[in-house]
Design a protein around this nucleic acid. Structure first.
Lengths: 181, 181
DNA sequence: CCAATCCTGTAGCGGTTGCTACATAATAGT
DNA sequence: ACTATTATGTAGCAACCGCTACAGGATTGG
């Protein structure tokens, strides 16, 4: 009974194609048949591999989180930035960049889904924040002590960007002058 | 030819019921037939009144924005709060409250939709931010100069909340001590 | 009162959704 | 070589989607 020989045919490759499709077309309207076509298979096979759409989405989100992690690591070297403002500026430039923005977009979908109580989204979103925090801590002038606040600020900026208020977002770090706290 | 007598039968009342349904069940999965049932009509009539689903959603988002505005005004009196941190704390408590959270939830859906390029969502989201900024400026210790940064911070906190990282959100204002900027 | 317009219910259309039944081909293990 | 397991295509199902055609009822202007 040696049945554990070939369990995963190429699931990883499949996931990469699926992620590609979702990054381009969004997570909400991702239905089996279009995704299957994008991955070069049939809906029939997707369900065969993953067991159902929910499971597929869960694995896909997990994959996206990892992919996002390596993208982050590759984008900015591990070295401390002088000030929080400079760090926010750099990170925002990355998140808005043509290459990375698809991830930002699907990230916001994950957040919305999590808020609606979808557990897979909540799980993946939670992990992504952890990844991000760790990543930030290595570059933040205050290390892991400063990362949470900075991340929160960045997320707020992404929200502003999404609804066409990038200028509001920029106001939060360009003006370093005194703010009564 | 006096045809302009009864143009809007009760559209406003309809919108209120529709909004109620969306606040409870989410914006993404809002399809005509369930919404119609929630509003006491038929999908047939919804399309007759609004012209189509897209137009309905657009009007609905507009309605939600207004409803949100009055909700905000009613929740906190117009008086300046001592510090930014205290203000953030108060606003967050509101956004997380049982009564208001449905709005927060659909707000995140609007943001995600806007990021996906849905114009109605972008429009409504943009307006909501303006409403929020104005509302904040009247309560912020620094007035309209401090509102943008505070709003961005709050939005970031909402994102953290959504994915189960409220503690990260709270770290951003509970610790008022020095942060190198 | 008649006719024109407005309102609304019924039924259905063409499309998509996730998923399954069935048959078959390929690939093993012995 | 035979058999058991795995892999994959074809066809289709029941449910839902937004929307429309049609008909009849209600209302209103003349």
């Amino acid at each position: 009974m040696k049945k554990m020989t070939k369990k995963k045919p190429d699931k990883q490759a499949l996931l990469t194609d699926l992620a590609q499709h979702v990054l381009k077309h969004g997570l909400n309207n991702a239905s089996l048949r279009p995704m299957a076509k994008a991955a070069g298979t049939s809906d029939r096979m997707l369900i065969y591999y993953f067991g159902g759409k929910d499971a597929l989405i869960a694995e896909l989100l997990e994959h996206l989180a990892s992919q996002m992690a390596v993208g982050l690591d590759r984008a900015l070297p591990i070295e401390r930035v002088e000030t929080e403002d400079a760090l926010v500026m750099k990170v925002l430039a990355l998140m808005r960049s043509k290459d990375f923005y698809p991830y930002t977009r699907v990230w916001l979908e994950i957040v919305a889904g999590a808020a609606q109580g979808m557990s897979a989204h909540r799980l993946a979103g939670n992990r992504i924040v952890l990844i991000f925090l760790e990543w930030l801590a290595l570059r933040h002038p205050d290390g892991e002590r400063g990362a949470p606040r900075t991340l929160t600020l960045i997320e707020g900026c992404l929200v502003m960007d999404a609804v066409g208020h990038s200028s509001v977002a920029d106001l939060t770090y360009q003006t370093t002058q005194s703010v009564s706290r």
